[in-house]
Nucleic acid binder design. Structure first.
Lengths: 197, 197, 197, 197
DNA sequence: ACTGGCGGGACGTCCCGTTGAT
DNA sequence: ATCAACGGGACGTCCCGCCAGT
C-alpha cells in the first residue's frame, strides 16, 4: 500500500521540479549541485533521488515540458505568439537549454530520451497550421510548409541563443516584421527570392 | 638567449591550440579535461600550462580567432558569405561556443575579457558595408543599418545553435533567400512591413 | 529522523579529530595530505569532508582545544602546572602549532577565527590568579600582573618551540626555579631588578 | 677555464641568497615558489638551481648564517646583546625559521646538514663566557654554565616565537631584567630556588 | 518516504627540478 | 653560465549517487 496518495505524489514531484528549475536557472546545469538542489527544494538527497533517478532526468523533464509548451503555442496560436513567448521566457533558463547542445548532438541515448518526451503529433499540427495559412494567403505558398517551419525555427533559435547570451535581441515587432517580409504572401510584384539589383 | 626561435614558439602555441580545439569540439569545454588535453596534444600539463595560464584562456583564444575570422568575412565579403562560412564551421566547435552563454551573461569579468579580444573597428566596417548596400539598392533603406545588422545576426545565431544542436538547418540558398526577402531593397510593389491579409 | 544519534555524531567527529591529530603530528600540517588523513582515520574524503569543511578547520578545532586546555591549566592550577603540562605535550603536535606562525601574523581572517575559538574570560582568570599570588606573597608585586603573565608566556613559548624543534629543554624543576627566581616575592634582601655587580 | 672569476661567483651566490631571503620572509618557505624566486632575483630557474641544488639548500644556507651570527653575538657581546639582536630581527624571517621545526626534529638528514653548518667552537665560547661571568660575579655560580646557557636559550626561543607569531613580546629591558633576576649573582640573602612563602 | 553519512573519483592549478639548447 | 620548455606528480575541494538506517 502506498503511504501517500497519487495526488500527493505528483505534488512532491512538482515541488522538486520547481526547485530544480529555479536552481538550474540560477546556477546553470553544472552549477546546480545536489547541495543547492537540496537547499532550493528543502528536501534531502534521498528524497530528490527518490523521485528522479539522476540530476539529468530532472533537467530532461523540465526541458521537455518547455518544448511541449512552446510547440503547442506555435501550433495553437501561431508563430507570432511563439516569438512573444520566447521573448518572455527566462533568459537564465534558456541558457541551461543551450548548455545541452553538445549532449543532444553527440549522445545518442540522450537524444533518444529527448525525442521520446516530445509528443509526435504536435509537429504535424504545426505544419498543418502553416498549410492553412498558405491557403488563407497569410504565408507565401511557393515554399514547402516544412521549409517555412524550418525557417521560422531558425529565427526562433536565434532569439533563444541571443537571450541566453544576454544580448538584447530585436523587439518582437521587429522579428515578426522580418518574418512577414520573408514569409508573407507573395502577392506583390517582386518574385520571391529574386536578387535585387 | 632564447632556447627556441619565435617561429618555433608560435608553432608550439599553435600545436597546443589545435589540440585544444579538437578536444573542446570532441568533449565540450567541461569535458575537455586536462588529461584529455594532454592526450590530444601529446604534451604534458607542464607544457600546456607553460603556454596558456588556464584552460579558459585556451578557449578564449580559440573563440576570439573564430569571432574575428567570421566578423571579417561579414565585413569583407558580406552576409551571404557569412552564412556559408557558418554552415561550413565544425558543428562540434559551435557547441562549445554555446556552452559559454551563461558565463557571458552573468560573469562580468569574463564578458570584459571576451570583448577585449574582439577588434573594435570590425563592427563599424560591417555597418559601413550595410550602408553602402543600402545606397546601392541591395538592402532596404527604411531600416537603420544597425537594425539590419541585428536581424542578420539573429538569423546567424539561429544557424549557429541549430548546427550546434545537430539539427539540420535550412540550406544556405534558403537562408540567403530568407535574408533577401526580408532585408532586400523595397523597390518592389509590396510596401515594407505591410501585414499580409 | 536523524540517522545516527547525537552521541554517535560526536563520536564520529572525535574519531576524525583523533586521526587528524596523529596525522598532523606525524607529517606536519602541509604534510598531512588528505590521502594520509584518509589512511589515518580509515575514512574516505567524503566522510571527513562531511564533518569538517576544510583541513584548516580540522586543525583549528584541535588547536583551539589545546589552547583552551592549557589556558585552563594555567588559570586553575597555576603556571608551574602549566610548565609541566607543556613538557608533557606531544612535541610533534607542538611543531604543527609552530607552523602556523606566519598565518597568524599575516592573515587577518585566520587570526580572527583563531581568536573566536579561545574563550575570552580565561585570560582574566589568569590575571586574577596572578594578582592573588601577588597578594599572598608568592609573586613579586612590583610588576603589573599583566607583565608577569607576559613574562611567563615568554618562557612557555620558549619551551614550546624548543620541544617542537626537538631540542632538549631544561627540566621542569629548572624552569620553575627560573620562574621563582625571576618572578617570586621580592621580600628577600636583593632588591628587584638591581643590576648585579 | 671558468668563465667568471671566483669573485663574481660569490657575488652571484650572494645575489641569489639575498633575493631568496626577501622571498622567504615575504611569503614563507612554502610560499616562496620558484617563480617568485625568479622574480625576486631577476634570474631564471636554471641560474638559481645552478648555484643551489634545491630550494631547501637556499634556506639552509640563510638560516645557518643567521644562527652563526646570533651565536657569535652571544659569544662576543653577551646575552643581553643577543636579546636586543633577536628583537631587531625581521619577524617575517623568524617565521620561516619556525616553519622548519618539524623537519629539524624528524628528518635526521636535515638535522645533520643543519649541524654541519654551525661552527662547533662557538658553543664552547659561549659556555666560556658564561663561566667568566660567573667568576666575575655577574652570573650566579650555583648552576652549571651549561644549564644557564640552556635557560637563556629557552627565553630567547620564546622571544623568537612570539615575534614570529606577531605577538608583542616584552621589551628588551624587561627581558633582560628577567634574566638578571633569575640568573644574576646570588649574593642576596635569598637562596636560589627556594620557594617563597 | 525520507534522511544523510559516506565512498571514491575527478577536477584545474601549480609546483619543483631536470634537461637540452644556446 | 644561463635559459625556459617540459614532465609528471600532488594538492584540497567538491561532486554525485548509493544505501544503511529510521
Amino acid at each position: 500500500v502506498p503511504k501517500i496518495s497519487d495526488e500527493a505524489k505528483t505534488e512532491r514531484r512538482e515541488h522538486v521540479l520547481a526547485g530544480a528549475r529555479r536552481c538550474f536557472a540560477a546556477f546553470g546545469y553544472e552549477g546546480a549541485t545536489v547541495v543547492r538542489l537540496e537547499a532550493e527544494t528543502g528536501l534531502s538527497r534521498g528524497a530528490i533521488f527518490n523521485w528522479f533517478p539522476t540530476k539529468e532526468e530532472l533537467f530532461l523533464e523540465l526541458a521537455a515540458r518547455d518544448n511541449a509548451r512552446l510547440a503547442a503555442t506555435w501550433a495553437d496560436e501561431g508563430h507570432e505568439a511563439l516569438v512573444r513567448a520566447v521573448l518572455e521566457e527566462d533568459p537564465a533558463w534558456l541558457g541551461v537549454y543551450a548548455e545541452f547542445g553538445r549532449r543532444l548532438r553527440t549522445d545518442a541515448d540522450f537524444r533518444e530520451r529527448w525525442k521520446q518526451r516530445t509528443p509526435p503529433e504536435v509537429e504535424q499540427r504545426i505544419v498543418e497550421r502553416i498549410r492553412n495559412a498558405q491557403k488563407g494567403g497569410e504565408l507565401r505558398d511557393d515554399l514547402d510548409a516544412e521549409e517555412i517551419a524550418r525557417l521560422i525555427g531558425l529565427i526562433l533559435d536565434g532569439l533563444v541563443i541571443q537571450r541566453a547570451f544576454g544580448f538584447d535581441p530585436p523587439a518582437h515587432e521587429s522579428v515578426n516584421g522580418l518574418l512577414r517580409d520573408a514569409l508573407g504572401s507573395r502577392k506583390g510584384a517582386r518574385p520571391a527570392g529574386k536578387k535585387p539589383g
